[in-house]
Amino acid sequence: MKRLKIGGKRVSTEIPTSSQSDIAFLLIIFFVITTSFALKTGLKLDMPKKTDTVKTVSMEQIDKVLITQDTYLINGKKTGMQGLADAILALNRPNLLIEVRKGVKYQHVLDFIGLIPASGANISVRMEK
């Protein structure tokens, strides 16, 4: 061990490293505690596969839904957010054509699409023409 002589006293020139591992482990513990796992949840869309054949459905077999800024029109009948789930379940045809009016917010569309899995209907979404 090297020692310097300052004012008649011998002083160690080594940097104390004994607490370095404590600091490192404290940093690890901090990162482990503050890290949050990004668990992704959402709506999985059951899209047609490459191998699927195209099925033609007549307009009589389809229920039409128009999503506007403030309401939903199911086969032309105005339906608010309340009672929407019941209105979807009441539809007895398995195919839904959803048209979205320009300027409608994403949340408003997902409010509707989020209720579809319970009904088991096939949906097709497009912008209003």
């Binding site: 992704k40 999503i67 979205v100 320009k102 409608v104 917010k105 994403y106 949340q107 979404v125």
Partner: peptide
């Protein structure tokens, strides 16, 4: 494809 949108995003953009 995983779409992460905002509640106020207009649906046209997603479409």
């Amino acid at each position: 494809l995983q779409v992460v949108g905002d509640v106020d995003t207009e649906y046209d953009v997603i479409d």
